[in-house]
Design a protein around this nucleic acid. Structure first.
Lengths: 136, 136
DNA sequence: ATAGCTGCAAACCTTTTGCAACCAA
DNA sequence: TTGGTTGCAAAAGGTTTGCAGCTAT
């Protein structure tokens, strides 16, 4: 982890109130891609007074600061992860739902090329692979 | 268009009732990626008795038959397009929201390779590029 | 005192579903 | 007659918001 969510949020000028500190801490501790409800459950385990509404408001705030990334893996709800500066894509295990992160410079370059060919400057992208584990 | 939605639905054994025929016709005529509400509006323009619920039930049916593809472009609602058998990805114009389709064999192959490297067999993927038009 | 933050509950939006009527086989 | 289909309205699931109270400056 380059830097904690908490530090980056504070550096961005956000008032780090008690609920926000708890939520930041939960996000820092997460090595998965929790949804709002999961974040709320984990935060409420630390301080039960924290509401789901505050979780939603806080993740939106962090997202606006570029501290957090919001993903929509097609299951209806949004899932979150710390933005590590470096970009990466996702491979989703179709059997378990587990999300694996990867980076591939070659595919990044190829996307730029495709966009340019279509007359566009590439601003962002979303790539998700769906696969099943190869047993050997 | 290889074959109409209507024909493929009938071939799949679906009872092509009047509402389903209208919805199929709307889908065949669409060259964009309409959401459920847009489909309903277009269908209702042909037969005002068609309900939104029927649109949802029908697109789900078509999707289950592999006749229709459901996309989630991150704007909260699902958007639909005829499955043309051949696969393609999307580039979304960030200024206009316009969706451009493309195919790139090189990127397809690269994805297979990445999945394999991670120990997975690639079942499917989703690739969306977000860009802005280059004015010259 | 003031501006911003919070919890609660209500509202919102998209999608799904229970139900009674309806239609085709 | 029987099972699938439809419209309507209600419900569901995820997310946002109005409001009154609270907290930190």
């Amino acid at each position: 982890m380059t830097q904690t969510i908490h530090n980056r949020a504070a550096a961005a000028g956000l008032r780090m109130t008690a609920p926000r500190r708890v939520i930041a801490r939960v996000l820092d501790a997460a090595d998965d891609h929790p949804d709002a409800e999961a974040l709320h459950a984990r935060a409420a385990a630390i301080d039960p007074r924290i509401s789901l509404a505050t979780v939603y408001r806080t993740v939106k705030l962090f997202e606006e600061q570029g501290i957090l990334e919001k993903h929509a893996f097609g299951d209806g709800r949004a899932r979150y992860e710390a933005a590590d500066g470096g970009h990466h894509d996702h491979l989703i295990d179709m059997a378990t739902g587990q999300v694996i992160e990867f980076v591939d410079p070659e595919i990044e370059a190829l996307q730029e090329k495709i966009a340019r060919r279509l007359g566009y400057r590439l601003i962002g992208h979303r790539l998700e692979l769906f696969g099943e584990r190869i047993e050997d």
